[in-house]
Design a protein around this nucleic acid. Sequence first.
DNA 1: ACTGAAACCGATCCGGT
DNA 2: ACCGGATCGGTTTCAGT
Lengths: 162, 162
Amino acid sequence: MDHVDRKIIAELRTNGRASYAELGRTVGLSASSVHERVGKLEAAGVITGYHAVVDARAVGLGVTALVGIQPTDTASDDDVAVALGELDEVESCYAVAGDEAFVVKVRVGTVDDLELALGRLRRIDGVARTHTTVVLSTRFEGRPNNTSLGRPAGDARGGVAS
Amino acid sequence: MDHVDRKIIAELRTNGRASYAELGRTVGLSASSVHERVGKLEAAGVITGYHAVVDARAVGLGVTALVGIQPTDTASDDDVAVALGELDEVESCYAVAGDEAFVVKVRVGTVDDLELALGRLRRIDGVARTHTTVVLSTRFEGRPNNTSLGRPAGDARGGVAS
DNA sequence: ACTGAAACCGATCCGGT
DNA sequence: ACCGGATCGGTTTCAGT
């Protein structure tokens, strides 16, 4: 993971469909070299996938809520997490510090759907209480943080070697 | 926005680098037709972009926190949102209902960086108080919700026509 | 680890239906 | 709206450095 890899990653984070030729031009390498590097980054689990970003309202998902989940005393966190993952409405799931075990992001079409989704959440074994915060507007979301790009080569903390 | 468009969108959400030829095979159309449809979806703002997803730890961003932001009485929400957007550490920003004005997702390298980031948040004009929830583990994130794909053609709520 | 050539395949344009 | 052909450019492989 050197400076060039980071530049490639930064580019692919903002334009996930950039061609290898294009990437090669921005980093000053041949397309084949970039192809090789990207393959290694994918294999190493640094790049985990590519996704199209879709306007949620345009696909009928105009209502977003953040839901804190208080567990029962007897619950296994892992079981609860798995159950949360089985609900299609739950887009993201974070285990958190504090008196709630999880915070999940729920996305649905209408407030009626939200009511249904919350009902399903509460019916999960191990869920004692939920605390819902309705999102009024998404100002921005999933923005790439490029802080790490300025750092010297070996300074990535936390694992996943190349 | 018909059934085929939704199928294309679903495919691109899970594989943002799928070729038009590939997409054509999965929906039963020629590559040129798919090319045309995707172009229209992009132009209509249904597809807003393509992003590589990166393992946060691998790029030196192993610490995530959710921060609720209480505004001062005199603050303009829009000004605060803009200021939040100027901080690189703030990955997402939601205006929410409740006694907090915003919930933001912050991603940094270390707890030291988190302390610095929270300091910067509090120094924003219009921010009275912050309430931080540290993420212990991300169970899953940004999962595509496919509820809308089962719906009949004209049933997408909330706007953005084709 | 990178390059450049070469074969292959997909993207993109366009005329026709 | 879709197709199919033609062309152009990118992807992918590989031998060479």
